[in-house]
Write a protein that binds this DNA or RNA. Structure first.
Length: 419
RNA sequence: GUGGGCGUAGUUCAGCGGUUAGAACGCCUGGCUGUGGCCCAGGAGGUCGGGGGUUCGAAUCCCCUCGCCCACCCCA
């Protein structure tokens, strides 16, 4: 094979496209009910936008971005996530002047140069939402509940909604210090990775699968008991609202975010059905990000859904079935029949009827086989006998009933579908 | 970036030193000269990922290389 797709970037072929379309249309529909409007931003941005937005010492920015120098010497990057672009567009368009509050939903590909594995790809797709301009915990809760509802609306049930508070600029450093001190006392018992994490991202130690580490940090202080008054109140309020909204959730103080802009509320939707990559969506609050990117000091909260992971979960739950075919097949025998049929087919298609036909003069048997394979519900047969009479045979593939009609009357025999 | 597994027909895989490399499914043709699914018969389709080596002989053993997958890391 001379050419193949780039590692970690795969084709989505027609056989699996209906699941994607279902996912996208359900998202736009459900999030639309909550007031989210679709936004489309470029896939490429100035590298600096992501460095500022995501944080210069995050793994994503340090190692995973596809960056290149444009001819004009600008450093550009393929977007590794969607929030920074959306906030940039919000600021650049001046949308905050008109409304202040804005809710956006976006769908599209993201790029991270990681080592691919199940549920993790170099080009992957996210559906994301951002609510900008609201600091009331009600919006956190509403968004978490919306995501939960969205997955249920898709028909999924094998997932858990988990929430946490990461604290703020005031209390998180204090907690990190306490937790860091704790880890140092256990230093000798920790694996090499966790010893490194003490310096880089201590909270990651909670994710470690090493049994010794799990035992060592069993008694570790949790962020929940170290939040400042404001953060604690906010978190409790989020939980109260979630209960009010009837959304089941689990508090998990071990949820960590990989991007620097998150503070206070963090949440994930997780599943145990997808192997190692267990989060199908994740997000949180990012007060301060809009300001950091050059806009007014407005709060925000958002989350992103990993589409490939959701599709896999849909497949595992038998929710990714192909759409029913509403195709009509034209079996044409001989050149005269074809001459006669071409304008008729054209006009029927323009009336909204899906039609496939035989282009290469195969035998009727072979055309019937093809019609069956594409699950045509009706086959229109036009051969020499029919042409001579100006008629066509209409065969119902399910009942096997056939009738003969005038070619000019074909349109009347098909249900009119909206064009 | 680190580790492990695997690359044989369109697909999933068997063969793991010895004649012309197999199966299932899929595809094509015919049985049914103008009627699909089921059945039956036949057919097409493979530089055994690539390169080098060992051997009388390599898909099979060794080395290198490329690719895919899974896990770590990290994350959606």
């Amino acid at each position: 094979m001379k050419y193949s797709s780039i590692k970690g970037m795969s084709d989505i072929m027609p056989s699996e496209i209906s699941a994607w379309q279902k996912l996208e249309s359900t998202a736009l529909e459900v999030f639309g009910l909550y007031g989210y409007l679709e936004i489309r931003t470029p896939i490429v941005e100035k590298t600096d936008l992501f460095v500022r937005g995501i944080g210069s010492n995050t793994m994503v920015v340090e190692k995973e971005m596809y960056s290149f120098k444009d001819i004009s010497d600008d450093m550009l990057s393929l977007r590794p996530e969607g929030t920074a672009s959306v906030i940039r567009a919000y600021i650049e368009s001046g949308a905050y002047q008109a409304e202040g509050i804005a809710k956006y939903v976006y769908i599209g590909p993201m790029f991270r140069r990681e080592r691919p594995q199940k549920g993790r790809y170099r080009q992957f797709h996210q559906i994301g939402v951002e609510a900008i301009g609201l600091s009331d915990p009600l919006i956190d809760a509403e968004q978490i509940a919306m995501g939960d509802f969205f997955f249920k609306k898709l028909g999924l049930s094998d997932f858990t909604t988990e929430i946490n508070s990461l604290g703020c600029k005031k209390c998180r450093p204090e907690y990190n210090k306490v937790f860091g001190e704790f880890l140092k006392t256990k230093h000798a018992r920790l694996c090499a990775d966790c010893q490194r994490r003490i310096l880089t991202n201590p909270l990651r130690a909670f994710d470690c699968k090493n049994p010794d580490c799990i035992a060592a940090i069993k008694e570790a202080p949790l962020i929940g008991s170290h939040l400042c008054k404001e953060c604690s109140d906010h978190f409790l309020s989020v939980q109260k609202r979630l209960n009010q909204l009837g959304t089941k959730f689990v508090v998990n103080h071990k949820i960590v975010r990989g991007l620097d802009y998150y503070m206070r509320t963090a949440f994930e939707y997780t599943t145990d059905k997808l192997g190692s990559q267990n989060a199908i969506a994740g997000g949180g609050r990012y007060d301060g990000l809009v300001h950091d990117l050059g806009g007014p000091n407005l709060p925000g909260v958002g989350f992103a859904i990993g589409m490939e992971r959701v599709i896999m979960l849909m497949q595992a739950s038998n929710l990714a079935a192909a759409a029913e075919s509403d195709m009509v097949f034209f079996a044409l025998l001989g050149e005269t029949a074809r001459e006669k049929a071409i304008p008729v087919i054209n006009s029927l298609r323009q009336d909204g009827i899906k039609i496939e036909l035989d282009y290469d003069g195969h035998s009727l048997k072979s055309q019937m086989r093809r019609a069956d394979k594409m699950a045509a519900h009706t086959v229109v047969i036009i051969g020499d006998e029919e042409v001579a009479k100006g008629k066509a045979v209409i065969r119902n593939m399910r009942t096997k009933e056939q009738e003969e009609v005038n070619i000019g009357d074909l349109a009347r025999h098909f249900v009119r579908i909206e064009v």
